[in-house]
Design a protein around this nucleic acid. Structure first.
Lengths: 223, 223
DNA sequence: TAGATTGTTAATCGATTAACAATC
DNA sequence: TAGATTGTTAATCGATTAACAATC
């Protein structure tokens, strides 16, 4: 069966369509054209139609798109409604913040445990979820069918632990450590969130907008 | 004076070059060719040379690049070494995690205060930094020359507060709220960090790699 | 039916890669 | 000098936008 490759650019836009459609739904909007949705989102109608047609024809000529139907279709595409078992590796501030973020749970990302090497943290409970010693991670991942690890470790340990996690059968790593994980195994998906680089980029653009030598040439479009 | 527009794609790669060069420096590597740097980073030598030549010729023919020199030049380009006054707006888990992240301070992003509406949080100190009542934000921003606001508010309040901050003269907003801030004012730069969308994207790719109907067609390249 | 808007093909634009003369 | 590798121009590739026939 042939199916064409979906570009990463398109995939990254899907959650955003989903979010906007969710808002329309909340506001009792029942139908929308690609033109109007594009105007609201700040993208072209063409792009929306091209993107959606990677996955199928969800609209009707002369009418537009049914908001609820399209919302549900995109939910399906994204796999929302599926349940993912998650661990948080590194129970510092960021790890705890992630564990406390309830919206993940609502969307099917169920956090099963946190892990840390720090004995002061081990045994604590964050929102009812236990912080376990890193030594237990292997057994835990294997016994609890863990799909995704949220990695909030310091740079020094991140790569090694990531490789271990992959060997225990984890399917995805959401990486907050400031390293690019080098994992040869193709069965794992890595998504890097380099917060620091994001902040530096922001500062760079501020700096150059202020700079009187340069024209106003950096757009504020981002993400 | 003419200067050509630097594309966003290039700007977003600069911090990554900076990071790799920093690591080379730590390992006492003194020179590197675009070929070897590209191999390490997983990009083409061409891309590195093209990117750098947006800003000037930093290398020498037949030799390559001096690591320390190039590192310093990119630091300069990015404005590292400059000092930015920062506030964290929303002192929940994520806000506190950001305030605790020392690496920001090291790089010149000095957090001056946190703000929250929750009276339980107001008056607390996070790493010696006071959590203040949101009512004080206007005066504080104006009196303390605040450059950047890290916004970790719930969706409902984010847009309104963002608009206010802009009116108080803030230059950049690092937005963690799951909304696209609509700010017409061109003098402010917004960088959105939509963590939830990032996680959904990860899950989507996992799902489709597993799915036996589709070939292995989603690359694990990300960011 | 007439008007609107899709799905889809074609044109454009921009970013990446390749090639190579310049030169250290 | 000969070899290596840059800076830069040209070619390719992919993503975005425009156009329009199909059709609700």
């Amino acid at each position: 069966m042939y199916s064409k490759k979906i570009s990463n650019a398109v995939i990254k836009r899907l959650p955003r369509y989903h979010r906007y459609l969710g808002e329309l739904l909340e506001n009792q909007v029942t139908r929308i054209s690609s033109k109007e949705l594009g105007d609201r989102m700040g993208v072209t109608a063409s792009q929306i139609r091209q993107d959606l047609n990677n996955f199928g024809g969800f609209g009707q000529q002369g009418y537009g798109y049914k908001v609820e139907y399209l919302y549900n279709e995109i939910s399906q595409l994204l796999g929302l409604g599926k349940k993912y078992n998650v661990i948080v590796v590194g129970a510092g501030n960021l790890g705890q913040a992630l564990a406390n973020y309830l919206d993940f749970e609502k969307s099917g990302f169920v956090i099963k445990a946190l892990f840390d090497v720090n004995p002061r943290l081990v045994g604590l409970f964050v929102r009812g979820i236990e912080v376990m010693d890193m030594d237990n991670i292997k057994v835990f991942v294997k016994n609890n069918n863990i799909d995704i690890a949220m990695l909030t470790l310091p740079k020094a340990n991140a790569s090694q632990i990531a490789v271990e996690l992959v060997s225990y059968g984890i399917k995805g790593i959401w990486n907050f450590a400031p390293v690019n994980l080098e994992i040869s195994d193709d069965s794992v998906v890595v998504e890097n969130v380099h917060l620091f680089e994001s902040l530096i980029t922001l500062a760079y653009i501020i700096k150059n907008e202020e700079d009187p030598h340069t024209d106003d040439m950096y757009s504020m479009e981002i993400q």
